[in-house]
Simulated scan of single mutants.
Amino acid sequence: MQIYRSELSPAFVDIFLKEIGLKEDEFELVLSHFRREFLPRNFFYVKPGQINAFNSYLSKGSTRTYTINEKGEEHILYFSFEDWWIGDLESMITGKPSRLYCQAIEDCEILSISIAEFEKLKEQFPSLKHWHEERMRRYVFSVIHRLTEVKAFTPEERYLHLLKKHSQIFQRIPLHHIASYLGIEPASLSRLRRRISSKKNT
């Protein structure tokens, strides 16, 4: 589906014109390699066994990325909202089948470019390559921070950090998904919210 400049979010345009520093004609060239797709609520962007062959920007909606253990229990690794790049990074880099689920929580609009085309553009535009390498470094740091939360923070601390980072989350994400992300039962999350609310009111 052809992408028109008027349909793009300012945040997406700023990535290429301001962060990366491409010229207008260079941006138009890069944009011509993207395609606009829609991912309905509850549909999967990628599932285990599939190869994540596209680099995709989430322009509208939200997703959850999770795993399922041997007992059939879901463990949500993170949520993605507007202005995030979604998918399984390991599968994108290695070309091997994914081990993760990435599912739309809301109706999503995605701007995608194939990994092969993106790699060619990185060679053509060194600033794009540098930006992508920096994004990968930030991703590694975010994974480390997430592991620190899981291992060292209490459920209440994880809840407060999530609320600070994504203040709109309880208006957009079902409570049972948030509980899974925090590593607690939905009933425990409800009690935690009531306890924190009562603290604020005293």
Results as ranks from 00 to 15, higher is better:
1 M>W: 05
1 M>K: 10
4 Y>N: 15
5 R>F: 05
10 P>L: 03
11 A>S: 13
19 E>T: 05
19 E>L: 06
23 K>W: 03
30 V>A: 05
36 R>Y: 13
38 F>T: 14
44 F>D: 12
45 Y>P: 10
53 A>F: 00
53 A>Y: 00
54 F>W: 03
55 N>F: 11
56 S>G: 09
57 Y>D: 04
58 L>H: 02
59 S>K: 09
60 K>F: 08
63 T>L: 04
66 Y>Q: 04
67 T>K: 13
68 I>E: 12
69 N>E: 02
71 K>N: 14
71 K>P: 00
81 F>M: 10
82 E>H: 01
82 E>D: 09
82 E>P: 04
82 E>F: 00
84 W>F: 12
86 I>T: 08
96 K>L: 07
99 R>Y: 11
100 L>C: 06
100 L>P: 02
102 C>H: 04
103 Q>C: 09
107 D>I: 01
117 E>G: 03
119 E>S: 11
120 K>S: 13
124 Q>Y: 08
132 H>P: 13
135 R>M: 10
141 F>P: 00
142 S>P: 08
146 R>Y: 07
148 T>R: 15
149 E>S: 13
152 A>V: 09
155 P>Y: 02
155 P>Q: 01
155 P>W: 02
159 Y>A: 05
161 H>T: 14
162 L>G: 09
163 L>K: 14
165 K>M: 10
166 H>S: 08
167 S>V: 03
171 Q>N: 15
172 R>V: 06
177 H>S: 14
183 G>F: 04
187 A>Y: 11
189 L>K: 02
192 L>H: 03
196 I>D: 02
197 S>R: 15
197 S>P: 08
199 K>S: 07
200 K>C: 07
200 K>P: 13
201 N>T: 12
